[in-house]
Design a protein around this nucleic acid. Sequence first.
DNA 1: GTCTATAATGAGATAGAC
DNA 2: GTCTATCTCATTATAGAC
Lengths: 209, 209
Amino acid sequence: MAKDGDTEKRILDAARTVFIRRGTAGARMQEIAEEAGVNQALLHYYFRSKERLSEAVFTETAGRMFPAVVGILGGEFTIDEKIDRIVETYLDTMSRSPFLPGYILSELHHHPERIPKLLGNVAGRTFSATLLPVMEKLDKQLASEARKGHIRRIGAQQFVVNLLSLCVFPFAARPMFRAAFDMDDDAFARLITTRRKELPQFIKSALRP
Amino acid sequence: MAKDGDTEKRILDAARTVFIRRGTAGARMQEIAEEAGVNQALLHYYFRSKERLSEAVFTETAGRMFPAVVGILGGEFTIDEKIDRIVETYLDTMSRSPFLPGYILSELHHHPERIPKLLGNVAGRTFSATLLPVMEKLDKQLASEARKGHIRRIGAQQFVVNLLSLCVFPFAARPMFRAAFDMDDDAFARLITTRRKELPQFIKSALRP
DNA sequence: GTCTATAATGAGATAGAC
DNA sequence: GTCTATCTCATTATAGAC
């Protein structure tokens, strides 16, 4: 409702709020207009259709989550450093936006046709062209560390899946865990704080030979 | 479209298919009717409204996933056995219905108000009344094993979160992994087969003192 | 650029025949 | 129980004034 920032950005912010809460199909243009403090016609003036607006929100929002992990996994760090940084980065980011993972997974599930476009835009170039070399390099690093006896042999894909699972899933399933463990927001935040400490140790221990 | 089974069940099956594909908000009664091989009026005859139909589908579908984990975690097994059984049960179940986790997480995210009702119906009694003692018992078991020096100390909640994360997330994020790693259905199935072998070892190793 | 008013249609729900 | 036809309303989208 606050009238700071230019109109287009206000609409985009409002749309993000509503799409995250309701999903693309469940969101109403009227609700977005109210959230932005403008009328419905203006939404169409800037974004032409609900479809385009929801795509703009999704690609912008989801596109922010992926470059980080690629940057870290492809960087010049030891395996232990990569684990530390991924856990730290993701838990911090998602603690600030705990509804993001649920929204992104939900959209990916119901609109898989959007994924190529999303990955195509990450880092301004073909995502596969960025990711494939990163995965190959990571796999070599993991193999090398295994040969030295520092860690157990694990494939790069399994390594990445495990890492992301342990970081992202607690947020994606937050409503479920909150209900099952009878947690309020504070209790959930404490659960995550504990994970920030314990998760790197858990993963490193899992990799020990 | 096949006319086997009684009509109510055919509708329920069709509705599950469509709700999983489109989500509650994105699903159309017309599409469900076509999928079931009946007309739209019959849907209302049996379930009165879209809202009730979607609730019936969700509680029935989600309700099938939760009792298993509680049964295993609360059973008379060693920690290692519990890990083996959870991994085996969940990976097998979800391999047969790879879209289920995405659907359930999406619904939990957009309709958290349904969770109490869902948990209230699991196992025919209050879920909290079932789960709380299970978690306490599990925590004591983990503490006992830690005192004996068999494993590192870990809280029951963190243990359960880690276990479920590693099992469920790969399916929930399946569209993303498929695109990112350029996998077809077979390649994804192989990724899961590998996990069935490696995941129990990964988790047990993580718990080593 | 922003608004009000309204068109156009999509979709859930019901009436009533069979 | 199952169907066709129809009602009613919500929702996206556009026209046109300011």
